[in-house]
Write a protein that binds this DNA or RNA. Structure first.
Length: 949
RNA sequence: GCCGAAGUGGCGGAAUUGGUAGACGCGCUGGAUUCAAAAUCCAGUUCUUUCGGGAGUGCGGGUUCGAUUCCCGCCUUCGGUACCA
């Protein structure tokens, strides 16, 4: 019999490596095909069973493409910068570079164990200075460019400076964050600092003030992920929004192109919709409102200028620049209280807040159409970064405004009569305008246009497009990321490090604690941060999304030290033909990559306008997440409560803290709990909870406390939820154990057999036996009496039909990424060939090639036993012959009123009339008719018969 | 809240354009083999039933000769929500 799986796998892994079976180079004689996986972040937990789902699918597809004659680029690498490694360093003192290197090594081994056909000679990782040199370089190029709205592309900033010198900024139509206008002569009087500050507002990489999650107690900035229910996940301390000057990328400049070009790419409808909604283009109008007794004006954005006569108050975002200034003394206290309340909440919490909250600031604006005074409020439902951070509130025609007005007793004036449109909601832009002066009697769509004209005529605003998309915050107050290639001189003027001096190396340190006032740990490395007198470096680092925004290009030419990739390489490989990855990257990574790619395209450095032609989202393999409850009302000692003691899971009193599933007994079941051992492991893992008390029904547990309950009596129930398998949820399951037991081919096929690739499903090792048995049965076809033995005689038509049915189905299923059904098709074929005791070469030789992309090891082994010298993975993929599949008899289900009552065989070419005649004479059909009149007989050729009575 | 997706036996899932609901596999039941067990093989397995049938693809409606599939209204779960990647 065939050898042990582990021996076979070892043998062929070595062979593929020695023979460079999967290495590719530019080859103009073959069509190219680029298959890419979203590269993994190498977490300390190792690869989990969810990761390979997409990799297996893309590997099957790559192997299929290779066997059908393509030159396939199928690389792999690592997204190696990121927060978890830094958190780990803070906990353990182990340098992120060290832990990351170890983790990558582990991933590399795990990946190669899974039999993927990666060209490892092209491997890259984002924390490699040879790689991030070019990440930094692209950043400097973004800095050196601005975006022209007319040409819809990036241009060198020098061109803009020339325009300013000639005519100031009043006529330019370019993407910007510049508020004031200036003339050419004014420009000529500006000093360098002023000019640079102005240019900053036009660059594609620029600085401005943004908000971060600030935790005073920890002295650090936190990721949204590290904040739960308004407190820090680590330690449970309060978190507030704090203003900081940071780098941003002007992705909004590309909003229209990012939106329009979606039409040119083969992505799922849902993914495109997500991106479209994320960009969130809306056509509307900006309008300036005067403020009573003040020189200030407030700019609002609205898509419903037609309802302005119903604007009875205004709402500003609590962070709006004018709030402080416009708040009257008698309102100051309540406003400050309210602003503090809002600052304690994250944006998601603000949006999800069902309770209506707000505060009156004491000032009044003038409605420019009615000339009435309307009160100015602040409210959390208005976001600083959306639109202008201020709205005119029309409570009669907007749901949220209505709730707000009702709660605070504000005036409501009906301005849209919807009586002509029964069933229309406030969201529908229909109705006839009333109570609105010159707009009265107009239908809403015409009224919107009329209102826009009026606004422009009065010079109080203009029709504009607004986007939900915001510029990307590109600064992280962290150590483990790409350093910015940026220095500041004594005047604060920015200098980009030139290409010949790149990369700016990330300095070494053994102290990863944050700097003063939330600065990056790099600020503590003073000789690096201040390289010479009067010169300081940017000490923030780039986010993880930086390195992943262009890595797909680097794979084309990964070792180039002169350019990010050669023109020869990018012109041959063009762009990614098939990209496989999780839909959780739908907006961040996939939006930024498209943006960077378009920018490089503008510079003529890549030939394509879009980076990923076709994209397939693999679903997530879900895991079980286990939580315990932290009582937020008790500060010392920290107190955890068993899940069965928490009456209201939604209550604000408790914070859900995820626990590593390895610590939990009976995980995933209703009885999942921590015993004393589990609690000790939890404490060792989360030292900040060393002194915590754990309360459960039967008693309490606290480390080193003599009064502890012991043994089985410690029953700290955990809450189990199905959710994503992720390093941050501590619930990963390792594929190594599975492959060790069943073999890699079996693991690969089982993951595919679980269900459709794009669907999420919880992991369950039960069931893998079926695939294991199938592979055994398949191998047994080649053996008789323990000997490898094939019949050289010609196959019967029945055998050929079985084979070609499978070939046809498997091929079309691969093209459709329906791998679960292709595996069932092969199972069916094996079962049938087994019944026929078929061991003919004419059948089994194509069959082993058919299965090769799925089971690369076993098929390679059998391929040599069949006497072949070259790898099966460069053999030809079988094609089906339709002539073996024709049927002369077709079986029809016979239905009475749509319900199946029997099955009959008819000749393929029999006419509908003949069929219905025979059907009506059948005994059981006659019994159903039984005196009733036959209304119709429907014969669907080749499908079914339905008798309607 | 907003955006996207999913919901079919005990479980994972299958079902070209609207045409046999439950392919394939797990599990379970019974049998064969065995001193016994594992493994293997064979048969059965949506529920219900007065054994004629009846019901059934998250829930409630609708279109149709016929709906898992199309339309309207809900419910639940999952992903994203801009600093996890």
């Amino acid at each position: 019999m065939i050898g042990k799986y582990s021996d076979i796998e070892k043998k062929w892994k070595k062979y593929w490596q020695d023979q460079a079976t999967y290495k590719v180079d530019i080859d103009h004689d073959k069509p190219k095909y680029y298959v890419l996986d979203m590269f993994p972040y190498p977490s300390g937990a190792g690869l989990h069973v969810g990761h390979p789902l997409g990799y297996i699918a893309s590997d099957i597809f790559s192997r299929y493409k290779r066997m059908t004659g393509y030159n396939v680029l199928h690389p792999m690498g690592f997204d190696a910068f990121g927060l978890p490694a830094e958190e780990y360093a803070l906990q353990t003192g182990i340098h992120p570079a060290v832990s990351t290197k170890e983790n990558m090594q582990r991933y590399r081994e795990q990946l190669s164990n899974l039999g993927f056909s990666f060209d490892w000679s092209r491997e890259l990782y984002t924390c490699d200075p040879k790689y991030y040199k070019w990440t930094q370089w692209i950043f400097t190029e973004l800095y050196k460019h601005y975006f022209d709205n007319q040409t819809q592309r990036a241009h060198p900033i020098d061109e803009l400076i020339k325009i300013f010198e000639k005519e100031g900024n009043t006529k330019v139509d370019v993407a910007n964050t510049q508020d004031e206008s200036f003339s050419a002569s004014e420009w000529s009087t500006y000093d360098e600092v002023t000019r640079e500050a102005i240019l900053m507002n036009y660059r594609l990489a620029y600085r401005k003030v943004g908000y971060v999650n600030w935790c005073e107690e920890l002295g650090t900035v936190l990721a949204n992920d590290q904040v739960k229910d308004g407190i820090s996940e680590r330690g449970g301390h309060p978190v507030v929004q704090k203003a900081m000057t940071q780098w941003y990328l002007r992705i909004t400049a590309y909003a229209d192109r990012l939106l329009n070009d979606l039409e040119s790419i083969d992505w799922s409808h849902s993914l495109k919709t997500i991106q479209r909604n994320w960009i969130g283009k809306s056509e509307g109008c900006s309008i300036f409102f005067n403020v009573k007794d003040s020189d200030e004006t407030i700019e609002i954005f609205t898509t419903r200028a037609d309802t302005i006569f119903g604007a009875t108050y205004m709402v500003l975002a609590p962070e709006h620049d004018l709030v402080k200034q416009l708040t009257t003394d008698d309102q100051r206290e309540s406003v400050e209280q309210y602003v503090a309340y809002v600052k304690s909440k994250s944006e998601v919490e603000r949006m999800a807040e069902k309770e209506v909250t707000g505060a009156f600031i004491g000032a009044y604006a003038i409605n420019p159409f009615t000339n009435t005074e309307i009160p100015i409020w602040i409210g959390e439902y208005v976001l600083k970064d959306y639109g202008t951070g201020a709205i005119m509130a029309v409570p009669s025609d907007d749901d949220r405004d209505k709730l707000f007005a009702t709660k605070f007793g504000l005036e409501i004036i009906d301005v849209v009569d919807k009586s002509k449109y029964p069933g229309a909601t406030l969201k529908d832009k229909v109705g006839v305008i009333i109570n609105s002066g010159f707009l009265n009697g107009l239908e809403v769509p015409e009224a919107i246009i009329a209102a826009h004209h009026k606004v422009e005529e009065l010079k109080i605003g203009k029709a504009v497009s607004n986007y939900k998309l915001r510029d990307a915050n590109f600064s992280r107050q962290r150590y483990w990321g790409e350093p910015f290639p940026v220095t500041y001189d004594s005047k604060g003027i920015v200098n980009m490090v030139e290409q010949e001096h790149l990369p700016v190396m990330l300095p070494d340190t053994d102290d990863f604690k944050p700097g003063k006032g939330g600065q990056s740990p790099l600020s503590r490395i003073t000789d690096w941060a201040n390289p010479s007198v009067g010169i300081s470096r940017e000490t923030d680092t780039m986010p993880a999304v930086a390195g992943s925004s262009w890595y797909f290009l680097r794979y084309m030419d990964p070792h180039n030290d002169q350019e990010f990739a050669s023109q020869e390489a990018v012109n041959y490989w063009q762009s990614v033909d098939l990209y496989v990855g999780g839909s959780e990257h739908a907006v961040a990574h996939l939006m930024y990559s498209r943006f960077w790619h378009k920018f490089l395209h503008d510079k003529g450095l890549v030939p394509t306008n879009e980076p990923f032609k076709k994209l397939v989202n693999q679903g997530m393999i879900q895991g079980v997440i286990e939580f315990i409850f932290l009582d937020k009302t008790i500060d010392t000692p920290k107190t955890f409560v068993s899940a069965d003691l928490v009456e209201d899971l939604e209550s604000n009193r408790y914070a859900k803290i995820p626990v590593h599933v390895d610590f939990v007994t009976n995980y995933g079941s209703p009885n999942s709990h921590l015993n004393s051992e589990g609690i000790e492991k939890f404490i060792a893992w989360r030292p900040e909870y060393t002194d915590a008390v754990f309360k459960f029904k039967e008693g309490t547990y606290q480390k080193n406390n003599a009064e502890n309950s012991t043994g089985d009596k410690v029953n700290m129930l955990t809450l189990s939820e199905v959710g994503k398998m992720s390093k941050s949820k501590f619930n990963v399951i390792n594929p190594d154990e599975v492959t060790a037991k069943y073999g890699t081919d079996c693991f690969r096929m089982y993951e595919m057999f679980l269900g459709p690739i794009e669907q999420s499903k919880p992991w369950d090792t039960n069931g893998i036996d079926g695939v294991s048995k199938f592979l055994k049965k398949f191998i047994e076809l080649f053996y008789s009496n323990e000997e490898f033995n094939l019949d050289e005689s010609s196959a019967s038509s029945q055998e050929l039909k079985i084979l070609h049915t499978a070939i046809k189905k498997v091929r079309s299923d691969i093209e459709n990424f329906s791998f679960n059904t292709s595996i069932s098709a092969m199972m069916v074929a094996v079962n049938e060939l087994r019944k026929l005791k078929c061991n003919k070469r004419q059948i089994l030789d194509p069959f082993v090639r058919l299965i090769a992309p799925f089971a690369p090891f076993v098929s390679e082994e059998i391929w040599t036993l069949l006497g072949n010298k070259n790898s099966i993975h460069h053999a030809d993929y079988p094609a089906h012959d339709e002539s073996y599949l024709v049927e002369d008899q077709i079986s029809y289900p016979i239905c009475i009123n749509g319900k199946k009552r029997g099955i009959e065989e008819f000749a393929k070419n029999m006419s509908n009339d003949d069929i219905s005649k025979i059907v009506l004479e059948l005994d059981y059909v006659a019994k159903w008719i039984d005196g009733k009149t036959i209304k119709r007989v429907i014969v669907v050729p080749g499908r079914m018969v339905n008798v309607v009575i």
